[in-house]
C-alpha cells in the first residue's frame, strides 16, 4: 500500500498524509478484516467441523447425559478464546503492517524514517485503537458463535460436516464485512 500510494501522494505534494492514510486503512479497516478472514478460514472451519463431529458421533449427547452444560463446556471457552486471540492478532497485524511500511519507506522510497515515524505517531489516535480492537472482539465473538452454531446443527451423517462448516464460514464472513462497514460508519458519524 505504501509503495503504491506514497509516490502518488508525493507527486501531488501530499506526502505528509501517508501516515494518516496508513493508520486509517491498516489499523481501522484492513487489520480487523484480514485478521478475521485468517481466523475464519483457519479456526472457524475447524470449530464448525469439530462441533459437527462431536454432534454426529454422539459426544454432545453424552455430555448432555452427564449433566454437562454444552454451552458452558464447549462453546463458551471457544468464544472467549476467539475473542482474546482475535484481539491479540489484530495488535500483531497492525504492528507488523506498520513496521513493514517502515521498512519499505526506509529501503525503497525517499521518505526518511524519522518523517515516517512522526507521521504514524501523529496520526494514530486513541479512537483508531478503540475501533480496531472493538472490531476484533466483536469479530472473535461472532466468528466463534457462527462456527459453533452451524457445527451443532449437524445431525446424522458425516457428509453434513463440510456443509455446516461452509455455512458457518459464509455467514461469519458476511457478518464481518457488514458489521465492519457499520462500525466504521458509526464512528465516523460520531
Amino acid at each position: 500500500m505504501l509503495i503504491q500510494s506514497l509516490p502518488q501522494l508525493q507527486g501531488v505534494g501530499a506526502g505528509e498524509f501517508i501516515g494518516r492514510i496508513l493508520v486509517i486503512s491498516i489499523v481501522r479497516e484492513l487489520g480487523p478484516i484480514i485478521t478475521a478472514m485468517v481466523v475464519i478460514t483457519r479456526s472457524g472451519t475447524a470449530m464448525a467441523a469439530e462441533m459437527a463431529t462431536n454432534r454426529i458421533t454422539g459426544q454432545v449427547e453424552a455430555l448432555e447425559g452427564m449433566g454437562v452444560d454444552v454451552f458452558h463446556y464447549l462453546i463458551a471457552p471457544r468464544v472467549l478464546g476467539a475473542m482474546v486471540s482475535m484481539f491479540c492478532m489484530i495488535v500483531y497485524f497492525d504492528v507488523v503492517a506498520l513496521v513493514g511500511g517502515f521498512l519499505v519507506a526506509s529501503l525503497r522510497l525517499t521518505m526518511p524514517i524519522s518523517v515516517y515515524m512522526e507521521q504514524i505517531a501523529g496520526s494514530l489516535q486513541p479512537l483508531d485503537l478503540y475501533i480496531s480492537l472493538s472490531k476484533g472482539i466483536l469479530f472473535g465473538l461472532v466468528v466463534s458463535l457462527f462456527s459453533c452454531y452451524h457445527g451443532l446443527r449437524a445431525r446424522r451423517a458425516p457428509f453434513e460436516i463440510p456443509m455446516v462448516a461452509r455455512s458457518g464460514v459464509i455467514q461469519a464472513m458476511f457478518f464481518v464485512f457488514v458489521s465492519s462497514a457499520a462500525i466504521s460508519a458509526g464512528f465516523y458519524w460520531i
Binding site: E50, N54, T57, G58, Q59, E61, A62, L63, G65
Partner: peptide
Amino acid sequence: VGSVMRDGGLIEN
C-alpha cells in the same frame, strides 16, 4: 444418572 450408550459416547479429544 449414569449412562452407557451404544458406542460409548467417549469424548475423542
